[in-house]
Design a protein around this nucleic acid. Structure first.
Length: 272
DNA sequence: TCCTTATGTACAA
DNA sequence: TGTACCTAAGGAC
């Protein structure tokens, strides 16, 4: 399930498995049949990611046909070895070659777009901590001029691309920042630290294909607690830990709705 | 078997 | 602010 690290990892994995040789492209579910028919038998030459948007580039550099994929909340991608099993009726898009197949289910978006349309998507997204071209100062310009809470700003893909509900909660905890503080009250030093932390955390997320945010000194073993992995597969401080004790201060983790999502934080540790 | 929930976003009112 | 959209897993019965 997708925050930016998932999408960047998928770009790597699609390219590793399919770049350079023709692939069978099908849409068993039918909702992507036109795209599949057009690209079937063509060659994937590159894959790109910006925030939570994935782009698969077919045909020639210069006039690429891109498949634009956004997983939304429910989308999933599964890779497996050839031969591909018969697809279930929810498979929106399948790529297959002699060694690997990959199935896409439940995406919000799976559409064929041009270079110009792809450029327009990049233009409306904020800097992505996982991209080499990212400019954290551009994000800070928006944050520092906004009365909106930092919790909402971190989820705004126009401000910063790729952060989702888990990284938002965890990075604010790691920096002791109250999620309800206004963006304009975040200092340059705080933003620099948050950005650098996101770069490191999300890179590790790409490597491990999961979100881990707990520092080594707070790991269960180091704290004398039993080993544990949180429900969603990673080690975290506050995400989905409402009413349970904070690993650091022992106080109760709180949750509240903010912009239609569940926010999690520790009032004891996040005082400023 | 039904109900809830989920790492997301867009659009209507 | 609310609702629609897409899927699957887990828990309550």
């Amino acid at each position: 399930m997708p925050e930016g690290h998932t999408i960047h990892r998928l770009a790597q994995d699609y390219a590793a498995a399919f770049a350079g040789a023709p692939a069978r492209v099908t849409s068993p579910q039918g909702k992507c049949s036109d795209t599949a028919a057009l690209l079937d038998g063509t060659v994937l030459h590159t894959a790109d990611a910006h925030g939570k948007h994935l782009f698969l580039g077919f045909r020639d550099p210069g006039h690429t046909d891109w498949i634009h994929i956004h997983l939304g909340l429910f989308g999933k991608v599964t890779f497996g070895p050839a031969p591909a099993p018969p697809p279930t009726d929810t498979v929106r898009l399948r790529l297959a070659n002699g060694t690997t197949y990959v199935d896409l289910r439940g995406p919000t978006t799976c559409a064929l777009i041009t270079d110009a349309e792809k450029a327009a998507i990049h233009a409306r997204l904020g800097p992505d901590p996982l991209r080499a071209d990212a400019d954290p100062a551009a994000a800070y310009r928006r944050v520092s001029r906004s009365r909106t809470t930092i919790a909402a700003l971190l989820m705004d893909q126009k401000v910063i691309a790729g952060v989702g509900n888990v990284y938002r909660a965890e990075v604010l905890f790691r920096h002791g920042i109250d999620p309800y503080r206004a963006g304009r009250d975040i200092t340059p030093a705080e933003w620099d630290a948050v950005w650098a932390d996101l770069v490191a955390l999300m890179r590790e997320g790409v490597r491990n294909n999961r979100i881990d945010t707990v520092r080594p000194e707070h790991a269960p073993e180091a704290m004398g607690r039993p080993p544990r992995v949180d429900d969603h597969g990673g080690e975290v401080y506050v995400y989905r830990r409402a009413t349970r004790p904070c690993h650091i201060c022992g106080g109760e983790i709180r949750t509240a709705g903010l912009a239609a999502r569940n926010l999690f934080w520790c009032p004891g540790c996040q005082r400023t």
